[in-house]
Design a binder for these strands. Structure first.
Lengths: 247, 247
DNA sequence: TCATATAAGTGGTCTAGTCCACCAAATCAT
DNA sequence: ATGATTTGGTGGACTAGACCACTTATATGA
């Protein structure tokens, strides 16, 4: 276990440790079942306090990369799923993580008054305007999902003028508007494809679809986006890691 | 904010603080947007160190109950969902949390040799025996889900003799075998109902179903259960809270 | 030989601080 | 009045310890 930390960097020490160990697990240098240095060992190796080392291991535990047994030690968990946990990431990033090439075709992009439900989800008035985007999401040039998204106009003026076809939406929000995603609430449900969506996704009507309805909140707890994504059930499954106590 | 801690209790102080604040939020005594005591204030109120108070607030943040803004403070988040976060809980507990009365009808309970896929999921050999349970899950006496579960025999001898119809499986595993759930990996996908499942759930064939495939691990990282639950899409939606950094 | 005590190591919890970047409101100088 | 500066409060990161419950292996005793 070799670990060199950059103490000048703005990246916190625990995050550096976490990242390095995670990298080694993902690269299979640390194999499933292998012992990870104990909290005290890790602290000694990295010349940090035990609490800092512990914070790094804790994050790995919450993500399901390692498990800890009191009195025994810390070990690399068997990972059956290719989940990178359920971190809040956008479509582009998620597809790249799965080794697929994402692309997007914009089907609709306009301003409109917020519908009752959308207004409530975004915490705005029905008189307020929202951007309404419909996008076809492709992975390796084959249709994967149909997306229906709403964003409040007042927080993102001129968003419709940006290059949504080739840039990640979340990246645009962060770089152009300085709004970073922090938290999201998701509802997953199943449904059968309507004729319109079936045609867009090149599947038979009444095929199974996985609907992911997501409301995204920024660092300052502003509702940023309400989006429903209709995934082809034959090409997409959502993966999660649950833990008993998120503490 | 009144908070009395039991310092003799085996429940950690941070867990007591976390539980009490969470209770107040769920009881709407702390309303959305209201300020929660700052880390230093909370430490002072509870007569604990700031790190301990911080740990309690951190857990609440990860669960989506509060959000924090640097330089400003900690505030109660708006909760649109009745999610109890992505905590690992069983069917019985989940239904009670949603205000429904759960019940179970056992359709099949037998020992059999593990199929290839199940053996791999549970980390056992195909020669090993597993319990195979099929259960119909009802909420308020109406069919909600069909469940297909596999548990390794060697860790739970005589499990088939227990009262599975009326007791929570996870409770039995904990009280009778001393095995507590710690972590689970879940895959959610959509499908159309087969004739058999449609009949069991009292729906039309080809209706949409949400499949939740869950592999549960114990505190000592033992694969305890592999279960596929087929939920009626018209009666069940899965809800999650995602955060950007699980740290 | 076999049970029992002991020591060393582990994660879990907790303390009492420190320094930093950030924000808001009050204050001060122009 | 207004713009700049100070001040106090916030969360974020980090330290260097402490005690506990738990496990395992080793040594000790009957």
């Amino acid at each position: 276990m070799n670990l060199t930390l950059d103490r000048i960097s703005s990246v916190p020490l625990y995050a550096q440790i976490h990242g390095e160990i995670r990298r080694q697990i993902e690269a299979d240098q640390l194999k499933a079942g292998a012992a990870v240095p104990s909290e005290r060992e890790l602290a000694e190796i990295c010349k940090v306090s035990r609490m800092t080392a512990r914070q790094a291991l804790n994050a790995l535990k919450n993500e399901g990369f390692v498990y800890q047994e009191r009195g025994i030690g810390t070990f690399v968990a068997k990972r059956k799923l290719d989940v990178h946990t359920r971190n809040l990431i956008g479509f582009t990033e998620e597809m790249r993580g799965r080794g697929l090439t994402p692309s997007t075709k914009i089907l609709l992009a306009r301003r409109e008054n917020a519908a009752q439900e959308v207004a409530q989800e975004l915490g705005i008035e029905t008189a307020d305007e929202v951007f309404h985007f419909q996008r076809l999401r492709l992975a390796d040039d084959s249709p994967l999902a149909f997306e229906d998204a709403f964003l409040p106009v007042k927080h993102f003026p001129d968003l419709d003028a940006k290059n949504l076809e080739n840039e990640s939406l979340y990246k645009i929000l962060e770089t152009e508007y300085g709004v970073a995603m922090r938290r999201a609430e998701e509802i997953l449900e199943a449904t059968c494809a309507s004729k319109e969506i079936a045609r867009a996704l090149a599947i038979k009507p009444k095929s199974a679809l996985l609907i992911v309805h997501r409301v995204v909140f920024s660092e300052s707890n502003l509702a940023v986006e309400s989006v429903r994504t209709f995934y082809r059930a034959d090409r997409y499954r959502a993966t999660f890691v649950l833990t008993k106590n998120a503490v």
